[in-house]
Structure formats: C-alpha cells, structure tokens
Write a protein that binds this DNA or RNA. Structure first.
Lengths: 360, 360
DNA sequence: CTGAAAGCGCTTACAG
DNA sequence: CTGAAAGCGCTTACAG
C-alpha cells in the first residue's frame, strides 16, 4: 500500500525487469503473456509490475506486432439514430472479439471522409468500416487496400469496386412501400430525401451519388411505372435540406395536384413531414398518407403511429464488424456482399386517399 | 501514374530517404514538417513520398513524441440520444483542434468502464472524458491521474474527488419541474428513473450512485418537502428497468391514490410512460401530467407535445472537450467544474389535476 | 541546413 | 526456460 506518486515518466518493461532481476525479454514475456516463462519468474515479474503500477504501452506493442487491435469506423453522423444503432452492432461484435473501435464522423462530406480514412490508416487500424457519403467519389478508398487493410462498406456501395459490403435491399423496400400506397389507391406519391442533387428536379436516369438513396428512388420509380403512373419522377424530391424539408413538404401538399402520400427517406425527414402536415391543418392518414424509412422508436407513439420500413440496422453493423474480423484473421469470407431485407411495418399512417385530399 | 501494387510492407521514411538520396533524419524532417529543411530537399523528399505513396505511421510518431493526438471517451450508451449528442459536441471541438476521438461504451457497468479506461490509457490517449456509471466506484479513475493524463468527468461527479467536470444543475432543474407541477395543484408527483438501486423502495437519504440521478431526486424531494407534501419519497421510483418502466408506470397510476403527475428521468423512459398512459386509456394532460428530462426531438410532435427539461447536451460535450484540451496543453483552466443550467420548456403535457384523475 | 547515432517501449528471432 | 541483440518507424539531441 505504498503511495504511488503520479510520475511523469511511465514505468516500462525495463523497470520491471530491473525490479524482478530478470532480462527485459523475460519480463516482457511474462507481462505480454507470450513465449515461455517459468512460473517462479512469472509471479516475480507480475508482482513487480503490480508494485510499480506497470501499464503496457499498446502503441509500442502495435509497432512490433503490426496490429493495433482496433477497427476504424467512418459514418455520416453519429447523431443520426441509424448510425448510432449500427455503431452499437459494430461495437458489440468488436468488443466481444477483443477489438476497440475508433469512430469518426464525415458529416456526409467526401473531403472530411477522405481525411478521416487517412487518419485512421495512419493510426494503423486493423480494418476500416466506412459508410461512403458518395458512391461516385471513392478513390480514397483504394488507399485502404493499398495499405493492406480490410475495408467493409456499411449501408452503401462504391461504384465500380468490389469491396466487401453490408447493405439493405433498399430498392425492394422502397418498391414495397410504394406498392402499399398504390394498393390503397394513391397515385400522386412523393418521396423526400435530403441527399444532395445537382439539378433542380430529379429526372429518370439522373445520378444520385449515395447508393442507398439511389436504390430507393429506383424502387419507387419502378413501382410507380409498373402501375402506369405518368411522369412518376414528379414526386421525387431530393436535396430537401437545401430549401428545407418543411418547404418541400408544403410545396408537395399545396399545389394544384397535391401529393396524397409521402415516403420519407429517413426518420428525421419523417418528423418534419409529420409536423408540417399538422401545421398545414391536414390529417394523417385522412388527408395525407405517410411511410417513413426506419422504425425509430418515436414512430410508434405518435397519433397516428407511423407505418415504417424497418431496416435491421443493428445487424447491419454487427455483420460489418464480423466481416472485418474475418478479413483481419484471414479467414474465408462466406459472403462478401451481405444484403439484408427490410420489413414493412403497418401501423396507422396509411389510408385510401379521399376525394377531399384529392382535390384539396 | 505508375501502378502502385498493394504491398504488404509499408513504405517508411527509410524508403523515402533512399529514393530522395538524403538521410533518414532529413527525410523525416521534411515529411513530419519539423526542424529545418531546405526548399530544394523538401520538394525532393515530398516528391519521393508522393511517388511511393508514403503514409506516416502515427504509432511510431506517438511513441517518440509521447502524444497520440487522441482523446478517449467512455459513455454509458452511445445509442442514448443524450450521449450521441454530447459525443457530437466532443468530436466537433476535438476535430477542430486536430484531435481524434476514441469512443467506448460502458453499458453503465462499472467493470466495463474500468476495462475501457484501461484500454484507453494503454492506447496512450492524451486525455480521457468519462461519464462514470457510479459516483461511488471510481477508484479506477485514479489510474488516469497516475498515468499523468487529464481526466474530465461528463455529466456526473465522482464522490470525494476533485476531477475536472462538466455537469448540469440537475437538482435545480428537477426542483423547477416539480414546482411547475405543484403550481398546477398536483400533490401526488412521481419521478421515474432506471438507475439501479439496492432497496425495493427509495427512502430519504438513500444513496443513489449516479450523481445526476441523485441530484434530480434531491431536487424533487426538496420541492415536495417545501410544499409540505407528506411522505414525498413515495413517488420516487428507481431501478425501473428491472421490473419494466411500463409496469412501474402502471403501479403508479392504478393504486388507490394514483399519481397525477410523472417526471421521467430521460426521454427513453418518457416514451414508455407516454405509451403506457395511453394504453391505460388515460389522457395527457387531462388525467396525468408528464414532464420529461431531455428535449428529444420527438417530444414536440406527440399529441400533446411534451413539457420538457432541456439540457444543453451538445455544449456539455463541447465544454468537456475544451477542458480536456486545455489540460493537455497545460493551459490555465478557467473553471474546473463547469455547471450548466437546464431550461424548462413548457408545452402541453401539464395541466391541473382533475377531480376525475384525483379519484380515478 | 544535413547526417550519424541513440532512443521511444515493446517484440522477435537467435543462442545458449 | 532465459538472455543479448536487433528491430518496429519514427523523433530527438548532438555534431558538423
């Protein structure tokens, strides 16, 4: 119980070796739990370590082993419940395997993402999990392979590359949500996303850089086209953050031929739509039907509770981490592009359009 | 434009030095941007680095400098919007200062927290920001000081220690929320927290290990006592996760003398309370008044929107990071225990108790 | 401004 | 099982 002054100089293997009267190599072996050490020596070393309050320097260890026992993660925004939940899946799997996780935000900005990947690579992470902000700007991802580290794409693909990836079948999910609305008799169905887009209006074949959103738009367009809806692209609203999701929602609902149903590309958008609809004095689902991507917990307690597309987000993160670990260990990878299905959860925000809502 | 094969062996300063025909020291100086290097040599080295696709090893650098440019963070649960938001504040400030952040979850478990602190210390983080799960079990935090690294407590204090901390005045906030309810005429006011507690029922003076919750309970008790409410502790419900927040809510609302108002200690609890009240066929605020801690975004779109206690969460994280950076740089610290005020945001979930709800 | 050498705290062959 | 030496990829005095 001798007091241990907070010393500036850290105690090292050399100190322990001296105290235990063995060589540095032997002390290190006992401390690092590798190689051969006799029980007598081991306990002597461990006692000295305890006494001196020894703390291994993981950096030095990593320099020798070439492994940092760390997985680097780059997401768009940790405040987005989607990523927070996926992060949980990643952390749980990584922790169970003895790996730490370094998290970085890209703010969905390609340059910030590049910088984040660089930093993580410099820190010698053993693998990288990235949700690329753009599927078109992914040249920096080749650095990961060049550095000889495994890379797993989370939730989004990269054009023209065959990186390991864990995604959701967004196209089918969006088509199903659209079909649900069509089945109720809706014909003016809108889809709102905040994904940046260069043109003022979406036109079929236009390139959406984030693959998850691109897939959803494809799914919506496909379902609408199959149903014989003319000019289905009119309801596709991208880049909604620029002018404001509330403004976009208003436009959709206040024109001559207002939308009777809206699909929100994430729960944050859904929240604003929900609020705006109410502000306009309209009712859900009587005047406007609403389907939201992501089964955010609040969606079940609103009046009415929302019909949502539930993605297996935690599993998405867990699967990404599992893939990364398999690659790190050089194990055979069962499936290098895991695709999960999303489920439509029917609650009470969808109903048939009424004549009132049709004419508004 | 020569193809760069993905080599297992990383290219090092030595490789660059050879290519640029200078010494390792000089190459390192140009690469690391320190010391003196002539422009001619610098560009030669940089060109070689570019050509060979050089990537500095941050681990090696850290070993020499003794600094990792990394701040370690231990929170209870990143999925909790509270921590996700605080994390954002931490990240933004850290990034702006050129620091990375390593995030670890403790699951509000003291042992997991200890392990997390150990790992972070071993990884040589330059400072630690911790939201201690228990204010009573904080012996592992002394290791941080022993390792000579700054420590900042986030949202919660540690008993008997004077670590830097950034907290919210929870006592006043809780007292104010309680006063709001009292002013409306409520006398049977309950407070629900999921904080573990050894006894079946709370009794005045009982020790709650998480300081933020302890402070809130104190605030509630104080306001209730000042108002002359007899046995105010009867409404304090801790450890609600064990039996279920819904079960606890039911008990509170179904007894002979049901509570007429509930204060939820966080937004997750509030959500379950909200739902349970509805399931019981009761109305908010006619039958039950509700105030929630944390201005979660969904609280403004429910019917009715909730009256909440808004904590400056982002600022909490940002201030913690700022404090950590000041300590790292050895700067003078203006305030080693920053305390923020919380604000009561009045919406529509509080009303006077009706005779109906009083007799129920 | 540049270089040779030592060192950061470990691990890894290689002898014994 | 134990030790002396070299090495991981950088940085840091110290000479020149």
């Amino acid at each position: 119980m001798s007091p241990r002054p907070a010393s500036r100089r850290a105690v090292t293997v050399a100190d322990i070796a001296r105290a235990a009267k063995v060589s540095k190599a032997t002390a290190a072996r006992a401390l690092g739990d590798y190689g051969q050490v006799s029980d007598a020596v081991r306990s002597r070393v461990l006692a000295a370590a305890e006494e001196l309050n020894y703390r291994p320097n993981a950096l030095a260890r990593s320099m020798n082993t070439g492994r940092s026992n760390t997985i680097g993660v780059v997401v768009g925004d940790i405040e987005n419940p989607f990523f927070a939940h996926a992060m949980r899946g990643i952390s749980d799997v990584a922790s169970a395997a003895g790996y730490d996780v370094i998290l970085t935000n890209s703010d969905e900005d390609v340059e910030a993402e590049e910088a984040a990947v660089d930093v993580l690579l410099d820190k010698q992470v053993d693998a990288l999990i990235v949700a690329p902000a753009s599927s078109a700007h992914v040249s920096h991802l080749t650095d990961v392979a060049a550095a000889g580290r495994p890379l797993v794409l989370l939730d989004r693909r990269a054009d023209g590359h065959r990186y390991d990836s864990v995604t959701v079948d967004n196209r089918t999910a969006a088509a199903r949500a659209t079909a649900e609305l069509l089945a109720e008799g809706h014909r003016r169905i809108a889809f709102i996303s905040t994904q940046p887009y260069p043109e003022p209006a979406y036109s079929p074949g236009g390139t959406i850089t984030m693959s998850s959103v691109a897939d959803r738009v494809d799914g919506v367009m496909e379902a609408l086209t199959d149903a014989g809806i003319p000019s289905p692209e009119r309801g596709i609203r991208l880049d909604a953050r620029r002018r404001g999701v509330d403004v976009v929602t208003r436009e959709l609902l206040e024109g001559d031929t207002p939308a009777t149903a809206i699909i929100a590309s994430d729960s944050l958008i859904a929240m604003t739509v929900f609020q705006t609809v109410r502000t306009l004095g309209l009712r859900i689902p009587e005047d406007v039907s609403l389907i939201a991507f992501d089964n955010a917990d609040w969606t079940s307690i609103t009046t009415p509770p929302l019909t949502v597309v539930e993605q297996p987000i935690y599993e998405l993160g867990a699967a990404a981490a599992r893939l990364a670990l398999q690659r790190i260990r050089g194990e055979r990878v069962d499936d290098e592009s895991v695709v999960f299905d999303a489920a439509l959860i029917r609650r009470a925000s969808v109903a048939a359009p009424t004549p009132a809502s049709a004419t508004h």
